[in-house]
Design a protein around this nucleic acid. Structure first.
Lengths: 90, 90
DNA sequence: CCTTCATTTAAGTAATTACTTAATTACTTA
DNA sequence: TAAGTAATTAAGTAATTACTTAAATGAAGG
């Protein structure tokens, strides 16, 4: 859950779009994939990057895997950003 | 100055380290390079990515080029992040 | 069980990115 | 104006990343 992993995860347009979708509620991997032109395995790989960065978590329900935003980690990024408004301390 | 360019620029560890250095004051390209193990042209390329993303700006003084943080753009990122704390509106 | 559906894993490829060294541009000063 | 320094541009390469298709896993329902 390094800050590097976090920024790397956020650096891809498709992954940010996935996060955008999840803002409105949890979704299955398949439903997420429907919003993209890329293959299901492609999406699955993006989801795994987001999961490893703790930006989302996954829970299984029957044969479906639901993905959910983990909004706590966004605060990590926020903290990093905030440094650059309060110039040159610490 | 797209949000994509911005996140791409922030996704590299060395570029984030450059931004960290600039928090404490403007620096020349050469002085920045001294803090890294990579070549000067390598740093120059990173600086150009940061400049294109509007994260820094450059001004020339004699034969030196000074780089300076452009803290206003961080607010763009901030805005993007904030969405994920206030779930599912807009 | 066997089939179907949802998802992931595996393996390969194409595109992108981060670096390198060599050459070039721009400025300064003897 | 020649020599030295700072920085960038150019061109090539190695490493990484984003995708693809095919195969494997796992749960659901006849």
């Amino acid at each position: 859950m390094s800050i590097n992993e976090l920024f790397k995860a956020l650096s891809d347009e498709n992954r940010r779009k996935i996060l955008d979708l999840l803002r409105f509620g949890d979704m299955t991997a398949g439903d997420i994939a429907k919003h993209f032109d890329i293959s299901k395995p492609g999406i699955s790989q993006h989801l795994s990057v987001l999961k490893n960065a703790n930006l989302v978590y996954a829970f299984k329900k029957g044969q479906y895997v639901y993905y959910s935003l983990n909004s706590t980690v966004f605060q990590e990024v926020m903290k990093w950003i905030i440094q650059f408004n309060s110039k040159g301390e610490k």
